[in-house]
Design a protein around this nucleic acid. Structure first.
Lengths: 126, 126
DNA sequence: AACAATAATAGTAATCATTACTACTTTTGA
DNA sequence: TCAAAAGTAGTAATGATTACTATTATTGTT
C-alpha cells in the first residue's frame, strides 16, 4: 500500500469523527478540506483500510455500511429514535464466540452484534 | 392484510426452502410456479410479513437482506467458504440482551448476531 | 536529480438491491 | 351485486457501491 494524502485524510476524518459515519458521510466531511476528492476514492480506501484492519466495517445497522475508527473488539447499539450508534465494549457482553464455537464445532473468526432499542437520551424524552 | 395468492406462495416458498433466501432468490424459485409474479411483489410481501412477525429479516450477512421462515429467537452463522447460512439457536448463546441492558441502561428490543467462519463441512475439505 | 514501475486518483459510467409509481385486478364485507 | 380497500404486474426511479479509464503521485533505483 503506497502512501496517499487522500487515505491519510480519510483515516484522520474517521478518527476525528467517532460517529460511525458511512462512506458518503466521510466524503461530505472531507469535501471542505479537499474539494476534489472523489466518492470512489473514499470507498476504495475505506475498504482497503478495513481489509488491513486499520478501521472496522459495521454492517447490519441500517441499509448502508458504516465505519468505525475503534478497532478493538466491540459491538454496537443503534437507537431506533435518534439513529445514533453507540459502542458496546466487548467486556459488557458474555463471551459469545468461544461458547458457540465449542457447542457447534464451527470455526468462528468474526462476530458482529447489533443491538437496537431506545438510548438513554431518547428514553428521557418520552 | 387481505389474502393474496402471491403472498401465500411467497410464505410457502420460504418455508419449503429453509436456506435463508434473499428476495430475489425467492422470486427465482417462484417463477416456475407463477411466472407472472413480479419482484416488487416479492419485496413488498416479504417486508409486510416481517413487519407482522410471520418471517424474520436477516441483515448483516452480506450486502443483501435474507429472510428466514424460523421466527423463534435465534442467530446466524455464515460460512466464509460456502456462504451457507446456519441457524444458531438462542439457547447456545449466553444471554446478551438483558446483560447489556442492565449494564448500559439502554432499552434493548432487538438483537442481531452474525457469526462468520468455517462451517464443519468446509473444515473437512482442507 | 531523473526514471520507470506501480499504485492511487478523479470523474464518470455501470451494477445491484430495493423502493416508488401507476393503471389494472382481487378480495372482502355489506 | 357492488363499491371500497388492498394487492398486483410492470416499469421507472433511487441509493449505495463498484468498475473503468486516462491521468497523476509515490517509491525505490540508477
Amino acid at each position: 500500500m503506497k502512501y496517499s494524502k487522500q487515505r491519510e485524510l480519510i483515516l484522520k476524518t474517521l478518527q476525528d469523527n467517532p460517529i460511525h459515519p458511512t462512506a458518503d458521510e466521510i466524503y461530505q466531511l472531507l469535501r471542505c478540506e479537499l474539494p476534489t476528492i472523489s466518492l470512489g476514492t473514499v470507498y476504495r480506501n475505506l475498504n482497503q483500510l478495513s481489509e488491513s484492519g486499520e478501521v472496522m466495517k459495521i454492517t447490519g445497522l441500517d441499509g448502508s455500511v458504516h465505519f468505525d475508527h475503534n478497532t478493538y473488539q466491540h459491538y454496537h447499539f443503534i437507537c431506533n429514535k435518534c439513529n445514533k450508534v453507540y459502542d458496546i465494549p466487548a467486556e459488557l457482553v458474555p463471551n459469545i464466540m468461544t461458547t458457540v464455537a465449542e457447542q457447534t464445532r464451527m470455526h468462528i473468526s468474526e462476530c458482529e452484534l447489533v443491538l437496537k432499542g431506545l438510548c438513554r437520551d431518547c428514553q428521557k424524552l418520552n
